[in-house]
Design a protein around this nucleic acid. Sequence first.
DNA 1: GTCTATACGGTGATAGAC
DNA 2: GTCTATCACCGTATAGAC
Lengths: 191, 191
Amino acid sequence: MTTPADTSGAILEAAQAITQTIGYNGLSFRDVAAAIGIKSASVHYHYPTKAKLGAAIARRYTDNLLANLQTIDALRLNAKDALAAYIAGIRRTLEQNGRMCLCGMLAAETDALPDEVRAEVRRFVEVNVDWLARTIGRAKDVAEPDAAMRGHARAMLAALEGAMLIARGTGDIGSFDVMTQQFERLGLLRI
Amino acid sequence: MTTPADTSGAILEAAQAITQTIGYNGLSFRDVAAAIGIKSASVHYHYPTKAKLGAAIARRYTDNLLANLQTIDALRLNAKDALAAYIAGIRRTLEQNGRMCLCGMLAAETDALPDEVRAEVRRFVEVNVDWLARTIGRAKDVAEPDAAMRGHARAMLAALEGAMLIARGTGDIGSFDVMTQQFERLGLLRI
DNA sequence: GTCTATACGGTGATAGAC
DNA sequence: GTCTATCACCGTATAGAC
C-alpha cells in the first residue's frame, strides 16, 4: 500500500488496479498514464508493449503472493491457521477495493491474452496449488503432498476464485464471507 | 446447436460465442457481423446499442437455462441425479467449445458493464441459486428451502464457476471434471 | 433489412524535440 | 525520462440509398 517513488512501480500499481476491475481488454496506456499524471508515451518507455505490461503486473502479483506465503510460513502456524491467514489475504484483496483477484480476471480473459501473460496466469495457479497442497500435507504430517492433496488444493483455489467472481458479479462483496463459511462447513476448506 | 434462420437469432448466437471466449469488452459489432456474413450497420438495426445487445444475449442465456432446468425437473429424477444433470450441462458448455459460462465471464467484467447487462447477470445467479436450493430442499424433503440451503446453493454455483475459470485459465479443460469430483468427494456437491 | 459512407473518439505504438 | 505530435487502426453509432 506504500506509494512507489519510481515511475515503473507506479505504472504497475495503476495498471494492476485497472486490470483487476475492468480487465486486460479494458486496460489502456492512456488510462494508466492519466492515473499517475504522465503521458502514455512515457508508459511505453517503461513497458514498450501491452503484452510486456500485462506480463509484468501478473509477475509482480505472483511475486507478492509468494512473499506473503513466506511470511505466513515464517509464523509457524499450524496448518489450519495458515490456511485461515491465506483466505484472509484473499478477502483483503476483494473487500479493500472491490477488486477481483488479478489472475482470476486474466483467467476469464485467457483467449484474449498474449502468450506471455497467459504463462504468468499459469504460474500464479501453480504457486497457489503448491502452497495449499504443502499446507494440506502438513496437516496430515506428510512431507510431499500426493496427487489427491494437489487435487484438493486446486479445488480450494477454484472455489475461492469462484466466490470472488460471484460476490463481485452480484454486487454483494459481503457474500464472499458467507460462501467461504459454507465451504468450511461443507468440508472443502477443512484440512 | 441448430442454425437460426432469422438474423436476430444468428446475431445473438455469434455475439454470445464471442463474449463467452473474449468477454464483453472484446465483443464488437464488426466481429459479430463478420461471423454471420453481414455488415455492422445491420447488427445495429437489430440491436441499436452494445448495451442492448449484451443484455439480450444474457437474457436469452438465462432463458435457455430455465428451459433446461424445467426439462430436468420434468424427468422427475431424484435430487441427486437432478444435480448431476445440472452439472453435466455446465460441463457441456465448457468442453464443447472451450467456452466460459457467459454470466461468469460477465461477472468478472462487472465494473465495465452497463447497468442493463449487470441486472441480467444478477438474474442468472438468482435462477441458479433458486433451482439449486429447491433441489437441495427436495433431497431433505422440505417444500421451501431455508437460508442455509440457499447459502449451500450459492456456494455450489461459486465453486462450479471457479472450476470453469481455473480450467480455462490453465488451458486444461479436462481438469474441470477432476475439480468437480473433488467437490463431490469433499461434500460440497453432496445433498 | 441490408447496404455504403461517414463521423468521431479511443487504442497501441513510434519519431523526435527537450 | 518525459514530452508533443502523429500514425493507422478499431470502436460505437448514425444517415440515407436501395
